[in-house]
Amino acid sequence: MSTLAEMLSRDFLLHNALVGSVLVGLVCPLVGVYFVLRRMIFLGVALPQLSAAGVAFAFLLKSVAGVHQHGESGERVLAIIGSLGFAFVGLLVLAALERQGRQTVEARIGITYAFAAAASILFVAADPYGEAEMTHLLKGDIVTTTGTGLRLLAGVLGAVALALFALRKEFLLVSFDRDMAVVLGKRAALWDTVLYLLIGVTISFGVMTAGPLVTFGFLVAPPLTARLVTRHMPAFSVVAAAFGAVTAFVGFYFAYRFDLPLGPMDVALAIFVLIFVGVFRGAVRAVRWRRLQR
């Protein structure tokens, strides 16, 4: 209990890390619901990896070109540009290939993941400078989140959440029935691009804050859990975000209390919640079924 009180105190040493973690846990599932609904879950693992490769690439370019951005903010700007660039270009290329129907979805995403993972390692290996700093960024060392970094994260993810809410009927229509959207005169390609942009931004900031593993976990696990217990679209998004935020908070508690790494703790907890809710729902259904048969 004292740990919880310490975490909730304003003077908590890791206050920025806690808030950042909860923000990622809150917003990643809002984007993740579209991964689940559009059956693009594996894109959730490929894109964060691609985003991480973008961070590594930006640092490599800096080293090769001899450009020296001094200080933490300079490094962060570089990381944002690289991360966003790779994630967004990757999304657009994958979307274009999907429309042309080349290869299967699994093949496209598998190749993307393999490329991104290999490229990340190669970019890091080829960079003679700042490897330690870059490794921190790639791992998503949330503990080092500064006040400025947190404000930026809150601003960006807040804007993403607001955009997802404001444009929900457009995103839902193009996701559920693209043909209907076109017949109704909606610019389906434009709405897809806006959605991909929001996805790219969320993943980039998620990766830089919490790393690819946590970002993937929060993109996928809370929406899958929420899908088991909701019947309406608005509830689906809200419950997914709530699962994500609570998981992030509880994960932080356990990691801090038992001195465990935060990222794997968050993901393990999110998956545990998914399994627990799935089993509980199955049991409830089985009981109802038996009662009906009597």
Binding site: K169, F176, T230, F236
Partner: peptide, 27 residues
């Protein structure tokens, strides 16, 4: 006034958590 389009039901993915009313509301 766009035309009314009724696709085949199989073309729509059942994964979407939508009620009958929410589907009609899209139109």
């Amino acid at each position: 006034t766009p035309p009314g389009y009724v696709p085949q039901k199989e073309s729509l993915d059942p994964i979407f958590p939508l009620t009958a009313y929410e589907v009609v509301l899209m139109g």
